[in-house]
C-alpha cells in the first residue's frame, strides 16, 4: 500500500514539475497545485493504517493514526491559501504585463535593466569626465 502511495506521489510530483517548467503562468500555478497534492499524499502515506476513527471512547480493534490525517488536512488548507495568493499574484502580473508568458516578463525585465545600466554607466562617465 505504501508503495502505491509512493508511486502516486512521485507521479504527481513529476507532472507538477513538468507543468512548472511551462511558459504559461496558469500552467505554472497548476503545477504548484499538483506538487502540493504530492506532498499531501506523502503526509498521508507517512502513517498508513486501517482502523476506526480514534475518538474516545475507543472502539475495539485497530484505530487509524489521526496525526498524519491532521497533517494532511492542514497542508491542504495551507496549500489552498498559497494557491489563492499565487492566483492573485498571477492575475496582477497579467494585468500589468497584459501577457501570460514568463519569458516575456523576463524579456521585459532585461530590457528595463539594460536601460537602467546604460543610465548608470552614463552617470559614471560624466563623473569621470568631470573628475578629469
Amino acid at each position: 500500500m505504501t508503495l502505491i502511495y509512493a508511486l502516486a506521489a512521485g507521479a504527481l510530483f513529476g507532472i507538477g514539475a513538468y507543468l512548472v517548467m511551462r511558459r504559461d503562468l496558469l500552467r505554472v500555478v497548476l503545477g504548484v497545485v499538483v506538487i502540493s497534492q504530492a506532498a499531501t499524499l506523502t503526509l498521508m502515506a507517512s502513517a498508513l493504517g486501517f482502523g476506526a476513527a480514534p475518538i474516545y471512547p475507543l472502539p475495539s480493534g485497530a484505530i487509524s493514526d489521526p496525526l498524519s490525517q491532521a497533517m494532511a488536512l492542514t497542508s491542504v488548507v495551507i496549500g489552498l491559501a498559497t494557491t489563492a495568493l499565487l492566483l492573485v499574484l498571477v492575475l496582477r502580473v497579467v494585468d500589468v504585463f497584459r501577457s501570460q508568458g514568463l519569458d516575456e516578463v523576463a524579456e521585459d525585465e532585461v530590457a528595463q535593466e539594460a536601460t537602467l545600466d546604460a543610465e548608470h554607466a552614463l552617470g559614471h562617465e560624466d563623473e569621470e569626465a568631470a573628475a578629469r
Binding site: 502540493s36 504530492a38 506532498a39 506523502t42 503526509l43 502513517a47 496525526l67 498524519s68
Partner: peptide, 11 residues
C-alpha cells in the same frame, strides 16, 4: 513542499 516531504519522512 520539499520541506513538507521531509516532515512526512521524519514522521
Amino acid at each position: 513542499f520539499v520541506f513538507l516531504l521531509s516532515v512526512a519522512g521524519i514522521y
